[in-house]
Amino acid sequence: MFRIALTLLAIALLAGACSSSEPVEGIEPPSPVTSEELQALLADSTGPVVVNVWASWCTPCRSEAPLIGRAATEYADDVLFIGLDVRDTPEGATAFIAEFFPDAPITHLSDASGQVPTDLGGSRGVPLTFFFRPGGELSYLHFGVIDERTLALQIDELVNG
């Protein structure tokens, strides 16, 4: 039993060590954005906006990314999804986008300082998910990994509220 556990641990560590953040061809790195620019984008929005804050080094972000990608695809006609990559490298960001959001209709932006989420009313921790009504009014802010029920409920609030 101990040998099996040790072997599995060794495989897991080896597989983890083999993963890398190489630049990905065909995927553009997220465009840099400031707090003022993002707030102006939200103020000008005519529909609901979901801003998901992530980073490629953040394990919880990785675990919620498939759900965010599915939601963005499902609500592409009703909600604008923005992925805000913070305190990250362009290589890490493109690898993350290529892995989780290759086809998802998400506008990817980056904030190397990590200050933008704080200015929007959040914190420096990731992941964070902001839900904005048209015009940029904050409807709900979720700290940490978001689950499917919460995401669906808050999107429904934006779309039908």
Partner: peptide, 15 residues
């Protein structure tokens, strides 16, 4: 891949 990302297993809130 759960072998490449074993720590993700404990994040049950993700699904």
């Amino acid at each position: 891949n759960p072998i490449a990302h074993p720590m993700d297993v404990i994040l049950v809130r993700s699904g």
